[in-house]
Amino acid sequence: MKQVPDIIAANLKILFIGFNPGTRSAETGHHFAGYSNKFWKLLAAAALTPYQFKPEEDGKLLAFGLGITNIVARPSRTAAEITKAEYQAGRIILQEKLLLYKPQVACFAGVGVYREFTRQARVICGWQAASVVTGVADFVVPSPSGLTRIVFPEQLAYYQELKGYVT
């Protein structure tokens, strides 16, 4: 499977961070492309984008001060396939990206992503008490995966809180 390129630039408002690209994203070359993934719907519903982008429009995010990367670049069917060594390397690479690009907010798309990045056992959604990279606020939203049991209105509330911070 081919890797999905980051959508990233310096001084973004928000850099969204996922586990890794899924198989559908690898097939299409675009982020959050899974049929049941709610990422694009959540961005539009929170007014972070002017309408609901399709995954193939992910490059347009930069115009709105938004970007996407992952803690692990290698695509897989599930995050369970990511190895400890990949997470270890990914932590270093992600920290370097945050230091280099300095987004206002590093938004982790799922509690598990932040848990892997920080190695904290207990993580909750919302603003994190301390950030990993000085000058970059850490925020966690529920995973937008279709497998998430959190209902859409609860997910949306976190994206709306995030929007209120950056606008």
Score class of each variant (00 low, 15 high):
residue 1 M to V: 12
residue 6 D to P: 14
residue 6 D to K: 14
residue 6 D to N: 15
residue 7 I to W: 13
residue 8 I to F: 15
residue 12 L to I: 02
residue 16 F to K: 00
residue 19 F to W: 09
residue 20 N to H: 08
residue 21 P to R: 11
residue 21 P to H: 07
residue 24 R to K: 15
residue 24 R to A: 13
residue 25 S to A: 14
residue 27 E to L: 13
residue 28 T to D: 01
residue 29 G to S: 06
residue 33 A to M: 11
residue 34 G to K: 09
residue 35 Y to T: 13
residue 35 Y to Q: 13
residue 36 S to P: 10
residue 38 K to A: 12
residue 40 W to P: 01
residue 40 W to T: 03
residue 40 W to N: 00
residue 41 K to T: 13
residue 45 A to L: 11
residue 46 A to K: 04
residue 46 A to E: 09
residue 46 A to Q: 11
residue 48 L to R: 08
residue 49 T to E: 15
residue 50 P to Q: 09
residue 51 Y to H: 14
residue 52 Q to V: 10
residue 52 Q to K: 14
residue 54 K to Y: 10
residue 54 K to P: 03
residue 59 G to K: 10
residue 60 K to V: 02
residue 60 K to P: 05
residue 60 K to N: 11
residue 65 G to T: 05
residue 65 G to V: 01
residue 69 T to A: 05
residue 69 T to C: 09
residue 70 N to S: 07
residue 72 V to W: 00
residue 72 V to D: 03
residue 73 A to I: 02
residue 75 P to K: 03
residue 78 T to P: 03
residue 80 A to F: 03
residue 80 A to G: 01
residue 81 E to K: 14
residue 82 I to M: 03
residue 84 K to L: 03
residue 85 A to N: 12
residue 86 E to P: 05
residue 86 E to L: 06
residue 88 Q to K: 15
residue 89 A to R: 09
residue 93 I to G: 01
residue 97 K to C: 05
residue 101 Y to W: 12
residue 102 K to Y: 07
residue 103 P to R: 04
residue 104 Q to F: 04
residue 105 V to W: 06
residue 109 A to K: 00
residue 109 A to L: 11
residue 110 G to D: 09
residue 111 V to R: 14
residue 112 G to V: 04
residue 115 R to P: 01
residue 116 E to L: 01
residue 119 R to P: 02
residue 120 Q to H: 12
residue 122 R to M: 09
residue 122 R to H: 08
residue 125 C to K: 01
residue 126 G to R: 06
residue 128 Q to L: 12
residue 128 Q to M: 03
residue 129 A to N: 12
residue 131 S to H: 10
residue 134 T to S: 12
residue 134 T to E: 12
residue 135 G to N: 12
residue 135 G to K: 08
residue 136 V to W: 04
residue 136 V to D: 01
residue 137 A to M: 10
residue 137 A to C: 04
residue 137 A to H: 07
residue 137 A to K: 09
residue 140 V to W: 02
residue 142 P to I: 00
residue 144 P to V: 05
residue 145 S to F: 03
residue 146 G to M: 07
residue 147 L to N: 10
residue 150 I to R: 09
residue 151 V to E: 13
residue 153 P to Y: 12
residue 155 Q to D: 02
residue 159 Y to S: 06
residue 159 Y to H: 05
residue 160 Q to K: 13
residue 161 E to D: 14
residue 163 K to D: 03
residue 164 G to K: 11
residue 167 T to K: 02
